[in-house]
Design a protein around this nucleic acid. Structure first.
Length: 569
DNA sequence: CTGGGGACGGGGCCC
DNA sequence: TGGGCCCCGTCCCCA
């Protein structure tokens, strides 16, 4: 028994020794690995610091070169012949411009995602290909400053976008700008940073900076121009701001109305996973940073989710939902995944398929016919006005109100000067779309219309995934689910969900064919049929039968032909 | 020829 | 009385 006890004791001591040895071995291994990791981490940190220093040096160098070049150019060119892009805009706003000049835009070379400081901004007057972010900062009294009056087009980085960037532009603190300012105007005429207006001189692709002497009337306006397709994934590009839509020439006002969101967070309907815009069903919320907004902007640009929800519930549900008790949900504001990002790439705006296809024309037309467009602007009138509250609805409405304020101020000024109001039909369509300048009779109309540009569709169907920009369209859509067909044909048993469909259908009975071909005697009951027919005259028959070679102007004709003549059945 | 949706103007209601 | 808001009707386009 005693031997047994001794044996067990020895076993236990041996086990303990072995365990200790094992622990010591493990600890040693861990220590070694840890040391190795520490070395590697410190090495990586050193590398990072070195790279960062290099980057800073490069930025400083580039900025210095640009500043020197700018100074040289300013010395060489006493007064650039270019009367500035913004001057052109102003001229158009005053009715001095010529629409035949097309639309100006700032063009970034395609395929470039990132700004380079030395990358030129090309000015395109016709093509409308505009993909580069440009921020225009101008002084309200830029005009008062005369020919030297100032405005600036500042490049906005798209790569490694620094959220402070916009603010930095305004304060001149951003790398690449600050050195330039320091070596330019600031060096000679130190100015409070918030007093500076920065000037872009067209024709000079690099920013020409000029200090502003009048600090009190400073109005900083932002014009975010365009995102390219390459920026589809950038949530900040998909906010309710310009969204890449072309700015309306001649509308300085739009700068006050664009709800340029500081941040847009994407998430799926079903979760919080961050999305980058590829998901068509994604929703978004916006976060505005009032601290980054300036003056007129900051009080009217909150398009946050809360506001939209508030709007949605107060707006739509009061209208339709509680009326009929329809099961309609208005949830997060949604930007379609294919929300138009540029005027050039999305047919929603200008392409063949745009329903009215008219935005562009209307836009030009509005410039020509809308007296508001010709209203000379003095943005500083806004400074003394009471800011528009944001709590009553989406910002677009406010933008319209703000527009109205501007326009009314113009009228008032004209009256004071003994003249007639500049906008004679101020009651009619005085609320302008900030994207296309189209006029509407009330802010609500503008807000709805602007969803064409923003892709916002606040009204969602509970039965399917469809979303709509207008409540009425959602209501109409829901008849698809309910089967309701309130429009009955008196001649037959046909029933329709839409009144216009009934009206169209009744031509079958009446034989009315109001659409006549201008090139032959054929007449059609529907405009679309005439449109297809016209291709016969233009020899557009791109669809060939694979069996007999016969060509057709429409795929549907070919299909019918093949079913009739070559069906295997 | 029908079905569905986008977009916009008109008109009614409310404040 | 005028303006804002909302619903409805309608035109148009496309599949």
């Amino acid at each position: 028994m005693a031997n047994c006890m001794v044996f067990h004791t020895q076993i236990a001591s041996i086990m303990e020794v072995l365990a200790n040895a094992a622990v010591a071995e493990i600890c040693k291994l861990v220590d070694d690995d840890y040391a190795v990791f520490r070395v590697e981490i410190s090495h990586s940190q050193k590398e990072n610091r070195g790279l960062r220093r290099k980057l800073q040096l490069l930025e400083l160098k580039v900025a210095r070169e640009r500043a020197e070049r700018t100074i040289r150019e300013r010395v060489l060119a006493s007064r650039p012949s270019s009367v500035k892009i913004l001057d052109r805009y102003r001229g158009m706003a005053r009715g001095e411009g010529h629409l035949t000049g097309g639309h100006r835009s700032f063009v970034k070379p395609a395929g470039h995602n990132a700004w380079r400081d030395d990358q030129p901004i090309s000015i395109d007057e016709g093509s409308g290909i505009s993909t580069q972010h440009v921020i225009v900062i101008e002084s309200a009294d830029a005009e008062a400053a005369g020919p030297g009056g100032s405005s600036l087009v500042k490049q906005e980085r798209t790569e490694g976008d620094d959220p402070r960037h916009s603010r930095d532009i305004q304060t001149g603190a951003v790398a690449g700008v600050a050195p330039l300012l320091a070596t330019d105007d600031l060096a000679t005429t130190p100015q409070p940073r918030n007093r500076r207006s920065i000037t872009e001189v067209s024709g000079m692709l690099n920013a020409d900076l000029k200090s502003e002497t009048d600090s009190e009337n400073l109005t900083v306006t932002h014009r975010l121009l365009h995102t390219g397709p390459d920026q589809m994934s950038d949530p900040e590009r998909l906010g309710l701001g310009p969204l890449g839509c072309r700015p309306a020439p001649g509308s300085e006002y739009l700068l006050y109305s664009i709800p340029s969101p500081r941040m847009v967070h994407y998430h799926r309907d079903s979760g919080d996973t961050l999305e980058t815009g590829n998901d068509l069903s994604c929703t978004y919320t916006t976060e505005m940073d009032p601290g980054n907004m300036h003056l007129g902007l900051e009080r009217q640009t909150d398009l946050s989710r809360e506001d939209w929800n508030q709007y949605s519930s107060s707006g739509y549900t009061e209208g339709c939902l509680d009326k009929k008790g329809d099961d309609i949900v208005v949830d997060d504001v949604k930007v379609e995944g294919d929300a138009p990002l540029t005027w050039n790439v999305d047919k929603t705006h200008l392409g063949e398929g745009h329903s009215k296809g008219r935005d562009f024309l209307d836009y030009r037309e509005s410039l020509e016919t809308n007296p508001n467009v010709a209203t000379h602007s003095h943005l500083h009138v806004l400074r003394d006005r009471e800011p528009v509250p944001t709590s009553t609805g989406p910002s677009n409405s406010h933008s319209c109100i703000l527009f109205d304020k501007v326009l009314n101020s113009e009228d008032q000024r004209a009256k004071e000067q003994g003249g007639r109001p500049t906008s004679g039909n101020s009651k009619e369509k005085r609320f302008l779309c900030t994207f296309c300048n189209k006029g509407f009779s009330c802010p609500q109309k503008v807000e709805i219309h602007q969803r064409v540009h923003t892709g916002v569709k606040p009204f969602s169907c509970t039965q399917c995934q469809m979303r709509f920009a207008e409540a009425g369209n959602l209501k109409r859509h829901q008849r698809v689910h309910t089967g309701e067909k309130p429009f009955n044909c008196t001649q037959c048993q046909m029933r329709f969900t839409q009144a216009c469909h009934l009206k169209r259908h009744q031509r079958v009975h009446t034989g009315e064919k109001p659409y006549s071909c201008p090139r032959c005697d054929m007449r059609f009951a529907q405009a679309g049929n005439l449109k297809m027919h016209l291709k016969v005259h233009t020899e557009e028959r791109p669809f060939a039968c694979t069996h007999c070679g016969k060509r057709f102007s429409e795929r549907s004709y070919l299909k019918i032909h093949q079913q009739k003549n070559h069906s295997t059945r």
